[in-house]
């Protein structure tokens, strides 16, 4: 690791001030992405500003048909939460499938969404469940947040404080994990809330995206068969040593089918 100056933020405003004063600041939540990146010397921030001590940054609230998860909430806490399991079991399952137990004991939802790794799990839930991202400045709509590879709508120094999920009538999540890292080769979150159907895909493209053709088919018949013959074009999909773009396109259909089957089970 290159040298940096570490500091603890005492509040969101304090974090923003420290970020503004730093030459090249980086926030840290769980550090489960940031520290491996620094260890590989892939980044060289002047300052690392720790959000872990900010009061009221973690916790889960269920009310009025929504589940709100504060940014510093660890994956293990979401996975084990009776509230989340009761309201959106697919979301608890998603959190419980991230990495391994030790990664889940430190990694946070805010860090995962801010980081926007193309193979991360949580982005599919934002798009596939229609979650609103609350920051220190504004609310960002689910379809406006993920822009491109590791690129989000967050501005310099903007901090995610909370993610609010509408509770769907039903939802399912399926991922095909990379056998070594457990990141998604492809992950699909499907949900239905009244006549509103969402299909959120992660792992396949530069960032999470929806599949309108599958959503239309599911709106008329919410069954695995409805999506079984829908293939997405592989032209823009990721291709690497783990899976070709054609294979990823194929997996999107298979995972969508299984996610629907889970949602209606």
């Amino acid at each position: 690791m290159y040298e940096f100056t570490y500091s603890k933020a005492s509040s969101v405003d304090d974090a923003v001030d420290q970020f503004g004063a730093a030459e090249d600041g980086k926030y840290m939540s769980g550090g489960m992405t940031l520290l491996p990146t620094l260890k590989q010397r892939l980044a060289r921030p002047s300052d690392v500003i720790d959000l872990a001590q900010v009061p009221d940054m973690a916790g889960i609230e269920v009310s009025g048909g929504t589940v709100s998860i504060k940014a510093m909430t660890r994956h293990a806490v979401v996975a084990a939460s009776e509230d989340v399991r009761g309201a959106i079991p697919a979301l608890a399952k998603l959190a419980g499938g991230i990495g391994d137990p030790m990664v889940r004991n430190r990694g946070t939802i805010g860090g995962s969404i801010a980081n926007n790794d193309p193979a991360a799990d949580y982005p599919s839930s934002v798009v596939g469940l229609g979650a609103t991202i609350q920051t220190n400045k504004r609310e960002i709509a689910p379809d406006d947040f993920f822009l491109d590879l590791f690129e989000t709508a967050l501005e310099e120094g903007e901090i995610i404080t909370k993610i609010t999920y509408p509770v769907p009538d039903r939802a399912g999540y399926m991922k095909f994990p990379n056998p070594a890292s457990r990141y998604c080769i492809v992950g699909v979150m499907v949900s239905q809330k009244g006549s509103d159907v969402r299909v959120g895909v992660t792992g396949a493209g530069a960032c999470a995206f929806r599949v309108p053709e599958m959503e239309d088919a599911l709106a008329s018949s919410f069954t695995p068969d409805a999506v079984a013959d829908i293939k997405i074009p592989d032209g823009d999909l990721n291709s690497d040593i783990h899976a070709s773009s054609e294979y990823r396109a194929h997996l999107v259909t298979v995972m969508a089918k299984r996610a629907v089957a889970e949602a209606i089970a």
Partner: peptide, 12 residues
Amino acid sequence: IPMKSCTMLAVQ
């Protein structure tokens, strides 16, 4: 709680 001490700073 089990955590990976290679991916935490001492100060954390």
